[in-house]
């Protein structure tokens, strides 16, 4: 599954970051997304539950659905 379909209270581990859009991949990695990191959905925006705000390790990062779709995750046990 990808990051955009993560629900509240369900920590997940990043498995892969899509390199289809190399610039996007770079941007996501630079802000800190990396394989094996833990992510958790923390907040959603007021309009149409967008954008999404994730806890990434000890930081908070906001993404839109399109960006979140580029990150493949698996749910933590």
């Amino acid at each position: 599954m990808t990051l955009d379909s993560l629900t509240f209270g369900q920590p997940a581990t990043i498995v892969a970051i899509s390199d289809t859009d190399a610039l996007l991949e770079m941007a996501l990695r630079e802000i800190g997304f990396a394989e094996r990191d833990t992510v958790e959905l923390m907040h959603t925006g007021p309009l149409g539950r967008r954008p999404l705000c994730f806890r990434l390790n000890e930081t908070l990062v906001a993404l839109r659905l399109d960006e979140a779709r580029a990150i493949t995750i698996e749910l933590a046990e």
Partner: peptide, 11 residues
């Protein structure tokens, strides 16, 4: 086109 939003929320 739309630019991505990748925004860190500092503590």
């Amino acid at each position: 086109g739309v630019q991505p939003l990748i925004l860190e929320l500092p503590s």
